[in-house]
Structure formats: structure tokens, C-alpha cells
């Protein structure tokens, strides 16, 4: 845990020192380009690498009634029979975290009684984090588009509708910090989760907190020169990078942590974003008896044949009056 925290603090310091000692071009221009390339290249490589391994068996985890008799109502999404149902199941999984929504927690009470409680906090905060992050991501397009499309202004208006402070406080900023805080607190205070957590579980949390924190600091407190930042970001997207004067250090810390996140992403557990689409227990229909699934490496059949079986037990079978393919006489004559 501490190692991950120290690592993120160290990254922040590097960016701050770098910005202060003349490496602004490196941090503001070169690294972002490199990070984007690593992110795209790495993401594609990981997906292709996974996809190279075949899916030998169709093994959906069925979360409800199968389709069998006409009068029994199947669970079309939790146990999909069709492609459409499977797409629906995946959409529920990816957009609404269906499986996590099922979450319960168990407790053994006196009696003994094993009791199950609904436990949707993880679902709620996980969903909150992902959607806030998405919203913040979308909001950032204001720095890459000129003129800023109306849809973006509208999102910003809604996000800041509480009208607190100047500049207006975005709800997504508050919520994303709260959600990350919850996810971190769970790792620290839940015995089970703390026990399984690795440094590479804490690191992305701290990195994201650093990224979000530096963004908030820059917007609400340091109040960096937004116009200058936009000159830089527009330069980046138009492949015509320029480095305007007078952008505060906060911005360089922010963009450096973002670069780190992008470069780290494909090689970390954050790849669950792509991997979930390839999970064979979710992305396949429950129709294996109706439609044959082909295994590309299916080995040849090798089994003990009936003839071998009868050869061993023929006499016993005949004595018991069981039908045989070859009688003892026929078998003897064949030898």
C-alpha cells in the first residue's frame, strides 16, 4: 500500500520538478504523445493476444432459467439463448454491472444461522466511479475541440447545476473523489479485501486520486491559465504542438499523471475494461445443446469401444442372457 502511495507521490514530484526545471516540453508534449501511442498499441496488443487463444467450449455461467419447454419462461438476459439475449446480457454487465448488483455479504450468527445481506455499496460506488470518470473524460473534450460543441456546454451546465463556487463546482469531481475514496477505504478497512490486495491494486487508485486531485487543484485552487492550456491541447490534437508560456506547475503534474495512467493501463488489471468483453462465461449464449460449438483443437476420439468391452465380458454377458454382437463361437472362429 505504502509503496504504491510513495510511487504516485514520487511521480507527482518528478512532474513538478520537471516543470520547474525546463522539461515542460517533454512533460507537456513528448510524454503525452508517447503515452497515447503506448495506450493504443498496448490495448490492441492485449486484446489481440487474448483473442489468439481460442474458445474451445461454450461455458456461460447461467444466471437463470434455460430455454427448454415452450411454457417455461426463460431468463432471456441472465441465461440467454439467442445472440440478441447475449448482447443484452453483455450490455447489462458492461453498462450496469449486473453481476455486481447481485452482491451479498454473509454472516454466521448464533444458532448457528448463516445470514445473507444485500450488499450493493460496492456496486453503487463502482458504478459511480466509472460514470463520473466517463463524464469527466467527455468534459475534457472542451480542450480538444474548437468551437466547443453545444452538447459539451450542456453537460457542463448540468454537471455544475448546483452553482457552488467560482468556477462552478462539478458534481462529477466531488463524486469521483468520493467513489475512489470508498474503493480505497474498502481495500484498507475490509479484512477480506485488505488480505487479497496487492500493490498493483493500490497503485491505480492512488494514481487516479492524484490525477483527479491535481485536476481539481488546478481548476479550483491554482486556477491555471486555461487559455494557455487550451493552446497547448489544441496544438497536441492538431499535430502542431506549441508550448505557451505561463502554464502553472499543477497542469504539468496533471498531464504527467495522465500520461502515466495511459501508459500503465494496458499492462495492468485496468485491462478488465477490454477483457470483460472476452469473458466466455458471459459473452456466449446458453444454447449448447441446440447449436453445436466447435473446438478448433478438438483432439481425435480415443475411447474403449464396445467391441473391446464385449471381448472382455462376452462369456459373462452370454451367461446372463445379454445380447452380444459376436457370440463366443463367432469370436473363437475369428481367431
Amino acid at each position: 500500500m505504502f509503496i504504491s502511495l510513495l510511487a504516485v507521490i514520487a511521480l507527482g514530484c518528478i512532474a513538478w520538478l520537471g516543470a520547474a526545471s525546463g522539461f515542460q516540453y517533454l512533460i507537456g508534449v513528448v510524454l503525452p504523445y508517447a503515452a497515447v501511442l503506448v495506450f493504443i498499441g498496448g490495448f490492441v496488443w492485449r486484446m489481440v493476444d487474448w483473442a489468439k487463444s481460442p474458445v474451445p467450449f461454450r461455458i456461460p455461467t447461467t444466471g437463470g432459467q434455460q430455454k427448454s419447454l415452450d411454457w417455461i419462461k426463460p431468463a432471456r438476459l441472465d441465461s440467454p439463448f439467442t445472440t440478441a439475449g447475449t448482447v443484452g446480457r453483455m450490455l447489462l454487465e458492461v453498462l450496469l454491472f449486473r453481476s455486481l448488483f447481485r452482491n451479498t455479504s454473509v454472516e454466521i450468527q448464533k444458532g448457528p444461522r448463516v445470514v445473507y445481506y444485500s450488499a450493493k455499496w460496492l456496486w453503487l460506488f463502482a458504478l459511480l466511479f466509472h460514470y463520473c470518470f466517463l463524464l469527466i473524460f467527455i468534459r475534457h473534450f472542451r480542450f480538444f475541440l474548437e468551437p466547443v460543441p453545444f452538447a459539451l456546454t450542456a453537460i457542463e451546465f448540468v454537471d455544475g447545476i448546483m452553482q457552488i463556487g467560482v468556477p462552478r463546482m462539478f458534481m462529477s469531481d466531488v463524486l469521483v473523489v468520493a467513489a475512489l475514496g470508498f474503493l480505497l477505504a474498502r481495500r484498507l478497512f475490509s479484512e477480506k479485501v485488505r488480505y487479497i490486495s496487492l500493490a498493483n491494486d493500490y497503485f491505480p487508485l492512488f494514481l487516479l486520486l492524484g490525477l483527479v486531485g491535481s485536476g481539481i487543484w488546478m481548476r479550483y485552487f491554482a486556477k491555471v491559465d486555461i487559455a494557455a492550456v487550451k493552446v497547448l491541447t489544441m496544438g497536441l490534437v492538431t499535430m502542431n504542438p506549441v508550448l505557451p508560456e505561463g502554464i502553472g506547475a499543477a497542469f504539468f503534474i496533471h498531464i504527467f499523471l495522465l500520461s502515466c495512467l495511459l501508459a500503465y493501463f494496458p499492462f495492468s488489471k485496468l485491462m478488465h475494461m477490454g477483457g470483460v468483453f472476452l469473458s466466455p462465461t458471459r459473452n456466449l449464449p446458453n444454447n449448447t445443446r441446440a447449436v453445436r460449438h466447435v473446438n478448433p483443437w478438438n483432439p481425435p476420439k480415443k475411447y474403449r469401444t464396445y467391441a473391446e468391452y464385449e471381448d472382455e465380458f462376452r462369456e459373462l454377458m452370454e451367461e446372463a442372457g445379454l445380447p452380444v454382437d459376436k457370440t463366443s463361437e463367432e469370436a473363437a472362429a475369428a481367431e
Binding site: S53, V193, H272, S279
Partner: peptide
């Protein structure tokens, strides 16, 4: 041979 294994080795986030 098994995409399941490969994906399952990589994408766990240890959410518990």
C-alpha cells in the same frame, strides 16, 4: 488453448 484461462489470469481486479 483456453482463452478463458488467459483472460481470467489477467483481468481480476481483486474487488472481493
Amino acid at each position: 488453448k483456453h482463452r478463458s484461462l488467459k483472460v481470467f489470469m489477467d483481468i481480476c481486479v481483486r474487488c472481493g
